[in-house]
Design a binder for these strands. Sequence first.
RNA 1: GUCCCGUUCGUCUAGCCAGGUUAGGACACCGGGUUUUCAUCCCGGCAACAGGGGUUCGAAUCCCCUACGGGACGCCA
Length: 507
Amino acid sequence: MENIAQSVVRTRVAPSPTGDPHVGTAYMALFNLVFARKHGGQFILRIEDTDRARSTEGSEKAILDSLGWLDLQWDEGPDVGGDLGPYRQSERLDIYEVHVQKLLENGGAYRCFCSSERLSDLRSEQMARKETPRYDGHCLSLDPEEAEERGSNGTPYVVRLNVPTEGECIFHDELRDEIRIAWSQVDHQVLRKSDGFPTYHLANVVDDHLMNITHVIRGEEWINSGPKHILLYEAFGWEPPKFIHLPLLRNPDKSKLSKRKNPTSIFHYRDAGFLPEAVVNYLGMMAYTLPDQREIFSISDMSETFDHSRISLGGPIFDVSKLKWLNGRYLREQLSANDLLARLGEWKFNDEFLGKILPLALPRLETFSDFSPLASFLFSEKVGIDVDSISGKLEPTDASRLIKIAEWELEKLREWKGEPIGNVFNRIAEIEELKLKQLMPTFFVAITGSSVSLPLFEAMAILGPDLSRTRLRLALEVLSEAGHGLSKKGLKSLEKEYQAKYGNRID
RNA sequence: GUCCCGUUCGUCUAGCCAGGUUAGGACACCGGGUUUUCAUCCCGGCAACAGGGGUUCGAAUCCCCUACGGGACGCCA
C-alpha cells in the first residue's frame, strides 16, 4: 500500500473498437476507475484500434457513448485529450516503429519472413503430433544484417519476440501472488504485423509505459500473456507495472460472457430500460463487496472504500434477475415521480424517439388510442409470443433455421437502418427460394409480438440491433422449448450450409 | 492435447490472509401478513464449505493430491 501512495496511480481501460460496446469493458473500466480514484490517481481511456480490418469509427463512438452513459469518467482519452496522447493507437504508429527498431537492435526481437502457408503447414503438423502449435524459430537463425537487407528490399516480414528457450517467467499478480510460466510455453509472438501495425502485445506495453500506467487491471484471460509483456518490459529496460487480473464475467453456463448466450451490449441495457447507475452498481457487485457489505452503492461510494484485496476470484455469472431487482430499488427508492418523468423522457418518451414512430403509425390510426397498441413493442423488452404465431406460414423447424440465419446475416450489417435490414430479408428469401410473404410473418411476430403492426424493417431500425437480437433469440427459445429447435448437430450442419450459401460469419 | 487460473446455498457473496461462527446477508424460489387487484412493503422457509489425505486439541480457513469448471495457446484484442 505504501508504494502505491508514493507515485501517482494511473490506470487505464483499453478497449478495441470492434463490435458492440461490451458490458465486460464497462466492468473493467469501473474497477480501473475506482482504483485510481481511491488512490487519488488518474484513469485513462485508450482506444486499441490496431486491428485495421475490424476496427470502426462507429464502434469507437459507441464505446465512448456507452461508458459516458454509465458515467465512468476518464481523465484522459481520445475525446478529452491529455498530456501523454494521442490516446488512439492508430495515431501512434511512429512511436511503435521506434520501439520495434530498438528491439531489433538489441536482439529482443527478430524479423521473420515465413509465409502464411509455411506457418499453417507447421501448425497442422504440430497439431497432428498433438503438440501445442507455435512458431519453430525458423527465422531466428537468419543473419540479422541479411534479414535487414531483405526487409528493406521490400520482402514482407513480421517482427517476432525473441523468447528464451529455457527457464521460467515469474511475475506477480496482486491478487494471486506468484505466477510461474515456463518460457517453453511462450510463443514467439508477432509484435509487428506485415502491414506495419503493431499487435496488441507491443502497443499495449509501449503505451502503458509511456502513459505512466502504474497498475494494469485487466481480465484474467491475459494471465497467459503475462510473460510476453514482462519480457518486453525487460527488453526495453523498463519497470513493469503492477498487475491485477480480474475474474471474467460469465454466462449462466459458466463460459466467458458472450453475446451468443446473453445480451452483452451496454446499449441493450439502456434500450431495455435500465438505469445506468443500477447497471454500474450491479457490475460493482460482480466479484466485489464493499467492506460494510452495502448493496446499493454509487461509483463514488465504491471509490472511497475500494480495497482490491476484497476482489473474489471465482468468475461471477452475470444474472439479469438480480440486476432487475437492483434496478427496481433504484427506481423506487431514489426517484420521485417527477424524476421518473424526466428519466422516461431521456429514455424513449421524447420527441426524437416518438418522431421516428409517428410517420409509420399515422396511416394506421383511426383514433389516438390506436397508437399505443401499435407501438408498445418499441417500449418493451420482450413481447408475448407462442409457437403457432411465431411459425407463421413456415414449418416450426424451418422457422428456427431461418431465424438463426437472419441472426447471422443481421450481424454482418454495418448500418442499422431500414433499407439494409430489408435487403437482408430479401436476400434470405431469394437464397431460400421463398416468397417474402412466406418468410416475413415469422419475423413480424418475433419482433413485434403481433401480426398487426408497423412496417417491420423501419420498426427494427427504431428498436435497435440489441433488442431486435434479443427478440429473435427469445423466438428461438420458444420454438426450442416446444421441440422445434435446432439440435447441436442441426446447428452445426446449418452453419456449414450457411457458410456455403451466404459466406463466412463474422464475430 | 499443453500450460495457467479458479472452486462456500440454483445465483451474487460474507467469513479465509491473523484456525474455535447455530457458516451470515442478498437475488431467485416457496409459504404467510398488509394492499379492492397487482406490485411494493413486512414476516417466515428452502438451500452451500467439490472430494480425499495431512498439520492441529480443533480446519470453510493452513499444506498436498484428485475431480470439476474456466481461460490461453492467431500477422484478434
